[in-house]
């Protein structure tokens, strides 16, 4: 027990020696010392989520504002691949994930809580110079039988296969290139994404990418909480509460107005309210 009084000295000596060793190696960066708080893993999906976007995109702003309104700090880690986000959600049992094409099984879904945070207007699009007469769309996927569909990685493509549609997977940028070069016949994406991607990458093709259907489909986007995470269920409730607060205060509409035209904002909020309060 006598040695105990030397313990602080030994500890100090140990620390000095270890820092001397570290001094010759890579430096410790502040980022290495920050433990992410309430980390949500999100799939890069511009213009909704992306490291290059102002405030990392519309959906990131919505989630952060909602959680801040209930006094919860959060970190969104944006990854370029849905497969990695799925890995963190199901294998690492992280708090939550966000992304449309994570391809979860029925069994997976049992351990997850889906909190809708926004809606997107989606449509099927084709390249007009390649299909001048358009498509005879009557509202069923089987109307597109025999054509090729550019699908997202991890997208559930079973309905397309059943309808006799050929599948060509890829990233959206690559799919748009294939659409323009007539390697695939149609793709699906939110209208906002179409406008953003064409503005950024294919400005000369803006008039040539045409919607197959006249009416776009409203698709909810979720933050998916993990019931197996100790804070999963609580944080899911808190996010829903926070969304209600930001919608009520007008903050939610303010965020949407940065990205959307005015008449779409109220429609989206109404539809989101319907989802949150069935």
């Amino acid at each position: 027990m006598k040695n105990r009084k030397f313990f602080p000295v030994i500890l100090l000596l140990g620390l000095m020696l270890s820092s001397a060793v570290n001094a010759t190696g890579p430096r410790v960066t502040p980022g290495m010392l920050v433990v992410p708080e309430n980390e949500i893993f999100a799939v890069d999906a511009q213009p909704f989520v992306g490291t290059d976007l102002m405030n990392e995109g519309m959906n990131v702003e919505i989630v952060k504002a909602a959680l801040t309104s209930v006094e919860i700090n959060s970190t969104l880690t944006i990854l370029p691949v849905a497969k990695m986000v799925k890995y963190y959600l199901l294998q690492e049992q992280v708090l939550a994930a966000h992304g449309q094409y994570i391809n979860l099984s029925k069994k997976d879904k049992k351990s997850l809580i889906f909190v809708p945070i926004s809606l997107t207007k989606e449509n099927y699009f084709y390249y007009h110079p390649a299909h001048k007469s358009g498509f005879n769309w009557q509202g069923k996927l089987s109307d597109l039988s025999g054509y090729s569909y550019g699908s997202y990685q991890e997208e559930d493509v079973a309905p397309y296969k059943t309808a006799g549609i050929q599948i060509v997977p890829g990233r959206l940028h690559a799919l748009l290139r294939k659409l323009i070069s007539n390697e695939i016949d149609f793709i699906r994406m939110p209208v906002l994404t179409k406008n953003w991607m064409l503005d950024k990458h294919f400005p000369l093709e803006k008039e040539n990418i045409i919607a197959i259907t006249t009416e776009a489909e409203w698709v909810p986007q979720f933050v998916i909480f993990n019931k197996n995470h100790p804070d999963g269920e609580v944080l899911a409730r808190k996010l829903a509460q926070g969304l209600a607060i930001t919608i009520g205060s007008g903050q939610y509409a303010t965020i949407l107005k940065k990205y959307l035209v005015d008449d779409e904002v109220s429609e989206r909020i109404k539809r989101l309210n319907d989802l949150i309060q069935p």
Binding site: V81, K83, M84
Partner: peptide, 8 residues
């Protein structure tokens, strides 16, 4: 590499 492919 499968991650690389998915990420373009």
């Amino acid at each position: 590499v499968s991650f690389y492919r998915d990420a373009g």
